[in-house]
Design a protein around this nucleic acid. Sequence first.
DNA 1: GGCATTCCGATTGCATGCAGTTTGGCATGA
DNA 2: TCATGCCAAACTGCATGCAATCGGAATGCC
Lengths: 248, 248
Amino acid sequence: MAPTRNSKPDKAAIICQALRRAIIEQALKPGTKLPEDALGERFGASRTIARHALGQLAAEGLVELRRNRIAVVATPSWQEARDTFDIRIELERLVVRQLAGQLDAGQIARLRAHVDAEDGARGGPDTVSIRLATEFHILLAEMTESPILIRYVSEISYRCCLILATFSRPHSSDCAISEHRALIDALEAGRVDDVMNLMHHHLEAVADRALVAPAKPRGRDIMDILAPYAEPAPVAPAGQPRVRAIMR
Amino acid sequence: MAPTRNSKPDKAAIICQALRRAIIEQALKPGTKLPEDALGERFGASRTIARHALGQLAAEGLVELRRNRIAVVATPSWQEARDTFDIRIELERLVVRQLAGQLDAGQIARLRAHVDAEDGARGGPDTVSIRLATEFHILLAEMTESPILIRYVSEISYRCCLILATFSRPHSSDCAISEHRALIDALEAGRVDDVMNLMHHHLEAVADRALVAPAKPRGRDIMDILAPYAEPAPVAPAGQPRVRAIMR
DNA sequence: GGCATTCCGATTGCATGCAGTTTGGCATGA
DNA sequence: TCATGCCAAACTGCATGCAATCGGAATGCC
């Protein structure tokens, strides 16, 4: 009775997992088409299942789903990228606020082991470093044992991977390892304010290192660029004034 | 060409919308079963569509989806409720940080009109007041024009409705109207720190008013209650020490 | 009477089929 | 050469069908 467990791990979930990994490791680049039947066939399932998986990934923001059109890997805009990191900072500050001084020796050891693994991946492909760094943050979130926090941090961290894939220049995000170590030290010492600030600045640094504002418009977004030119006569301030605070 | 618009609003999305409203207005209480074919029949669609809609709502955390079992309206635990409000506070602080001093007269007017509507709903059923109050927050989020922020705030606000439905004592959350007005004033004046603090305390107040810790265990959660008794011999500190900071 | 077992209806997991829409190439004409 | 219109292939939207699984009632056993 006990050993049965969740014997059937849900076919759609498998496809989801595979696509997620492929996307965050940039095996599937933003804009890549994801036809339902091709996916289904590849994973030995029907379109129905592939469709379901795509729906989930769309809910996570990794995939764009347009009606009657082939699904594609999402291509975050630059402004979305900024907003995403802003949200991530606040969420992860919550994480470390909950964890500071609350972790037992085993948990601290697990964290250190993970960072060592990150260290070991230096020199390897960038995508692996990025994935490992992301998994460190997710590991932290999981230690809160708060389902919502875990879900949100995971989701937004994966999205940040996608963003890095879209905007980052090559070789930019491995010096984060020492910052991860500092985080662990502060967590262990239990100084809440310190660790929250560390996390804040760590993520800000990641964002600033990665998010080089696109001088030449990267990839798609062509329609966005053309939008102002589509107005017939730009005499008055065109359209509604966009109400976005310019942050940082 | 222009008048076509999105002519097909997606059947699954309709079901989603309907269920969401029903859930946040407590027409569907936590724990209510949601069988696929019953749903499909009710909305003139097939099980496939109903299933898809349930998947979406599960991704939003409004529905619980267990394999081979009937889907049910989610029943948040008390700890989840606390965590959810903590996250919501940070997200909405971001919202007002972006909006302070950036709204035009029309937007301010729309906000005031909405609060007036809330006022008009006083004395009506609690569920309507709660929905209107929630929509005020979502309206704010939409004014940021940040898709991610809008998505997260909407999602978590709906979840908070569900939480209120689960834990709130009757007659608790209508005095929020004056706080909404204060928020608008501060937004218009553009004092960022003020409005962030107002939002923080407003949401904290809502949480404190609503989240009465359940002395007698409310409804289901029987398994939770039994959990400690399931341990064979509670001699030593049972299992791993739960690592949750007790906040506030 | 209390408890384990068996069996059947209810319900989900998944695949397939058909209709409607979009895409992109090709032919036609200026 | 370039623009235009048409058509077939590709793909999605959705419904239905079949097998697997679950929950609960009836049954048998002590």
